[in-house]
Amino acid sequence: MSNQIYFDAMKAKGLADAADLQERSSSLDGTALYAEEDKIPDFAEAVKVRNMLERKAGQKDGFVCRSTAGRVVRLLQVYDSEIYLQEPEELPAQWGFVWSTDPDKALPFLTLSTSPYAKGDCCTAGGKTWRSKIDTNTWSPETNPEFWEEVKK
Rank of each mutant, 00 (worst) to 15 (best):
E90M: 14
K152W: 11
S115F: 04
C122A: 04
E82Y: 14
A9W: 12
K39F: 04
V64N: 00
A106E: 02
F63V: 02
V73G: 02
L110S: 12
A9Y: 11
D8F: 13
K60D: 06
L85F: 13
D80S: 07
D29W: 03
S67Y: 08
G127Y: 12
K153A: 12
A35H: 05
A57T: 07
N51R: 06
Q86S: 12
C123I: 11
R74T: 00
K133F: 00
T68C: 05
S115D: 14
V49R: 13
W139R: 08
Y117P: 00
E90W: 09
S140L: 11
E150I: 14
Y117S: 03
L107N: 01
I83C: 11
E149T: 07
A44Q: 14
C123H: 08
E146R: 14
D121R: 02
Q77S: 06
D102C: 09
Y117E: 03
Q86C: 12
F109M: 05
T124L: 03
D61P: 06
R74K: 03
Y117H: 09
A125M: 15
V151R: 01
N137F: 00
S115K: 07
D80P: 02
G58Q: 04
E149L: 10
C123V: 15
A32L: 06
E146Y: 13
D102Q: 09
M10T: 13
Y117K: 05
K56R: 08
